[in-house]
Design a protein around this nucleic acid. Structure first.
Lengths: 203, 203
DNA sequence: GGCGTTATTGAAAAAGTGTCAATAGACTGC
DNA sequence: GCAGTCTATTGACACTTTTTCAATAACGCC
């Protein structure tokens, strides 16, 4: 006797099925790497045949990319809405949205982050795109509202700050003991100007 | 006709063979991910049979872990020697050693970093251990020579600072345009006190 | 130069990925 | 209700890669 109660096959609309498989993929890939996840297991969890996964995604690799893209799109959608106001306030709003996202979509965020490193260029690209949604706004288009002026030095620094922010949030989620949410937000926001401050002033 | 010139099998001591395979693994895994590296290729490059790899490491996964552990040990050995002097000077020496290491062992460092994220808990653990070798020294044992007093907040912050430092170095190696080595070192060293400064003073 | 130890091999089993013609839900018009 | 059509879904099969293990052959020792 298997886990499935329904002995009959279920026929969903392509959109529903695709969505179901992506959701499942996000969940499963947050705790395993791709090669630790067999199509067999995935198919069984979804209650479908192996063949159907290939019908929808073509290959295991392509499935992975679709899963990561789904996670990235979620992140971008929930953190990207433009914000008015002072630079530091905008940064606070942005970081709050980011923290909220990771709070409610921990699995999705993990599968995104994990995919980015071990993976190929396509995966890395998707990840960079998502990261840009968080960091782009610190480089203002005009000279007025920007937090950081764009130079080779600051570009490197801001990219590294994003890695810092990611580690703060994931580290806190993994072990929140002794640190409040407000302290985390404070560090996320104030760290950027503090880091920019270590660069020699550029004119 | 294969690549091998010697038609006869060569018999090495277990230590030599193991070491040879690990070195080769570090090199090959710096440009591919684990599932892009077949045992076939590895065995051919090493001039051995597939079976021998299993004799030494048991499984592909275990081989990967051994490779990552080797890379981590290298990093620890070359950056860990304790240093005398002022806290900030010790930090400078430490960061210089780190930068030097990544400079001369770029491939090995990449395979370490890439493995840690994409992978399972064991891999992550090995990586954390290596990172600790770089960051532990910022927490002094006595109240005198320390840079940072250890609290839940600073522990989280220093861990994230390590991620920041890693991204700075790897980002710079990937695209050094417009940024000097001295600027990188300066950022690596000064960023830590700058970040600690954003925390409210604890008494 | 024979002998024992054990590093090493190669063939065959197991596991996993990808393919495709055949099957069967669900809707449509009658 | 019922037959017919469309297409989502399956399952068996081909292929690739990993893993196992009994047999083989280097090397050191006497």
């Amino acid at each position: 006797m298997t886990t499935r109660t329904a002995s009959t096959r279920s026929r969903l609309s392509p959109e529903e099925r695709r969505s179901q498989l992506l959701d499942l993929g996000v969940r499963l890939l947050s705790s395993r790497s791709l090669d630790e996840l067999s199509i067999d297991l995935l198919a069984e969890e979804a209650g479908i045949s192996r063949g159907l996964l290939y019908h929808y995604f073509g290959s295991k690799q392509a499935f992975h990319e679709a899963v990561v893209r789904r996670a990235a799109d979620d992140l971008i959608a929930q953190t990207a809405p433009p914000v008015e106001g002072e630079p530091l306030h905008r940064l606070l709003v942005s970081m709050t949205a980011y923290l909220d996202y990771v709070d409610t979509n921990h699995a999705g965020y993990l599968s995104l982050v994990k995919a980015a490193q071990g993976g190929n260029d396509t995966l890395r690209e998707i990840y960079d795109e998502a990261r840009a949604a968080l960091t782009d706004r610190v480089f203002g288009e005009d000279a007025q509202g920007q937090i950081v002026r764009e130079t080779p030095q600051t570009r490197l620094l801001v990219k590294a700050w994003a890695a810092f922010a990611e580690e703060v949030v994931l580290g806190w989620k993994a072990d929140p003991a002794g640190v409040t949410r407000e302290e985390v937000l404070d560090v996320l926001v104030m760290s950027l100007p503090a880091l920019v401050g270590v660069l020699p002033p550029q004119e």
